[in-house]
Each structure stands twice: as C-alpha cells, then as structure tokens.
Design a protein around this nucleic acid. Structure first.
Lengths: 188, 188
DNA sequence: TTAAACTTTCAGAACTTCTTGAACGTTTGG
DNA sequence: CCAAACGTTCAAGAAGTTCTGAAAGTTTAA
C-alpha cells in the first residue's frame, strides 16, 4: 500500500503535530492515514504505508483505541482486524475533548478539591488556597459548560458557533424580556 | 525559600500534569510556584524552592515567557529580575488558549488550506480532500467562535457559561421573535 | 490436533529531551 | 576601570521515550 503525495503530506504533518502535544509521531501518522483512507485498513497495510515495524503499528493502534479514536471492524472472509476513523468529524472532536478532559483536567480538579479541604497553615497557605480556589472555579465552570454544550445536537451547536460574539446581543435581549416578566428563580 | 506542604503538593502535581501535555516537568513546577506565590520571585528563590539548577530555572522562565504566562518585574534597589503569574485567571486562560491555537492549530489549518488547493490525482485523493475539507471547516468554525467569544468581557462570558445548555432555549426564543419581524440579512 | 495466519509483548538499541556546571556576557556601584 | 552580582548559553552526561525484531500468544480452518 502506497500513499499519494497529497496523503503523504497530510500524514507527515500529523506526525509533527502529534508530537507537539502529548501524542507521539507514530500514533499521529497512523491516525492520519486512517482518517483520509476511503476504506478501513489492517495493520500490515499501515505498516507498509508508513514504513513502521508491525509491532509499532500494533502499539500505536492500542493507544488510539484507548483514546476511542478508531473503530475496529471485520471483513467477511478475512480474519485480520481492520481499523477506521469515525466519519463524523464532530463526533471525533467530542471524543477528543472528552478524553483530554479525563486525562488532563479531572486529576487536577480533584487535587485542587483535596487541597481546598485542608486547613491553611499561616498566611502563605491562605493565599495559595485562594489562588487554588480561583483555578478550581474556573476549570469547573469551563468544563461544566463544555459538557453541557456538547450535549446539544450538531446543528444547534453549529448555529451557536456561527453566531459567535453576537450571542451577547441575544443574552441582553433575554434580559430585557425577563425584566418585563415576573421574576423566576435562577441559579446564582 | 521553602514551600509549605500544601504548596508542595500543588507544585508536584503541576509538574506531573505539565509533562502529560506538551510542557515539561520543570516548566510546570516553576509556573505552579509562581502561581501560588503571594509576591513575585526571583530565579534564585525558585531554584532553591524547587531544587533545580539555576540554569534550568533560567530556561524554564524563557519558555514561560514565550507562552506569555509570566510577567517580569523589578523591585526598587534590587537589580534581580522578579517574576509573577498574572492575577486574573481568566486572562491566564485566554493566553493559554491563544498560544495553543497559534502553536497547535494554525499550522494545521494552513497545511489543510494548501492541500485543498491542489488538484486531486484520482479518487483516493478526491476522498482525502473531502476529509481534509471537513476537518478544515470544523477547525475554522471552532477556533473562529472561540476567538469571538474570548472578546466578550469576563462577566458576559461567565453568564453564558452558567447558562450552559439552556442557551438552546434562548436561541429558539430568538428564532420565534425573528419570525415575527421583517427578515434581515444574516451571515449563513 | 495441527499448521497457518494473525496479534501482542518485551528487552534492548536508537533516538530525543532534560538537566547541569562551567564559561561567557552584561550591568552596576564604587 | 574593576569587581561583584546577575543572567544566558552550551556541551555533555543523565534520564526518558520510541521503535524494532524475535518470541510468545491466540484464533481459525481443515
């Protein structure tokens, strides 16, 4: 299996970028090749296309599975395992965001929560705790919002995004309307 | 300079997490120590608090400067350089998001744009290009929206976030209102 | 049950990144 | 101008990670 020059470029770029955030070059390239492929690929095909050892591909695929970024499939009359990247780019984005939250954000949040329960020893600690609380609250707000918004269907999400900063207008407008109606309990 | 046990824990955690995404352990710890500190610190103080070599701290600070995450200050009658992390956590969040976009997203976007200008050689390429376009459009939508929203003031942003998924209701409501008024041009 | 066709695991080689002390450069006060 | 006090750079050793081939494990068809 050979890559066209176009796919080649995409794959190489993904390798580079992969190593710029936590994922390694190999894993990035494997994902890229799956992402642009028209049909699911088996491990040997990937190894050939990327000139990696078979075992390297195997490890890369395990990593991608742990991120839930690839799907395993079987073809009738062939017992090799075929992999593909999901079609829906929004779904990919969601998965990525969720996994990163789990790995990069949740542990911090729980460390912060623990630290905030302790009794501060002296004014240094009191200040440190204030700072930690600020960080904690920000992270909680942002991630909570993110997970709320992710539950919206793709169309609503797109509309919201295309609206961009104009959302402010809508909020203000909502305020005016609310001012004219009897007050209702709102969260904070 | 010595860290309290509380600060110690925070700093160690940040070191770990730092290496989980692109940044290295040292840099993470330096940032953490600045973040919780009540007053700006000079390089020697950080080196002592963290038991790093002076040169390691110097390099870490350069890295943090390149991310625009620390501020350099001077104290009267002292020619050492003092560093602090900005007070406003929202500002920190913004800076981080912007820098990550610059480093991790923009290069991909421009690679995709280039690739999309080429004439596809055969159906493989045509498919690869369709996939790249999907990715390109998604990234553009998300980052565009992000930069729009970042321009809102912190209060509006907080309200928007606290609203969470209920924003959908507001959008629907807006639709109804719009239906009752003469149409106006909207950006698709 | 066996052999063929796959996949996974693992120890160590190859490679990359990190960390340090030493050397070098710059600024300041005397 | 000098010496002290800083900050930066760099080469090289230490530490960490990635990648490979060989070996072991698993599944299937006959």
């Amino acid at each position: 299996m050979t890559l066209t020059p176009l796919a080649q470029r995409f794959v190489l770029h993904f390798g580079e970028m992969g190593s710029r955030w936590g994922i390694n070059r190999t894993v990035g390239q494997i994902y890229a090749v799956l992402y642009v492929s028209q049909r699911p690929l088996n491990a040997d095909e990937m190894a050939e296309a990327l000139s990696f050892s078979r075992s390297n591909v195997s490890m890369g695929l395990k990593e991608l599975e742990s991120w839930r970024l690839v799907r395993l499939e079987h073809q009738p009359g062939d017992r090799r395992e075929y992999y593909r990247a999901p079609d829906d780019v929004w779904a990919i984005f969601r998965t990525l965001a969720e996994e990163r939250r789990k790995r990069e954000v949740d542990p911090t949040l729980s460390m912060l929560r623990d630290a905030l329960l302790e009794t501060p020893q002296g004014p240094e600690d009191a200040h440190a705790q204030r700072r930690m609380r600020e960080m904690h609250d920000l992270i909680e707000l942002v991630t909570g919002w993110f997970s709320d918004v992710q539950r919206l269907d793709a169309d609503t999400l797109k509309r919201l995004m295309r609206m961009g900063a104009r959302v402010q207008k809508v909020l203000e407008f909502g305020d005016k309307v609310r001012a004219l109606r009897p007050a209702r309990a709102t969260k904070e």
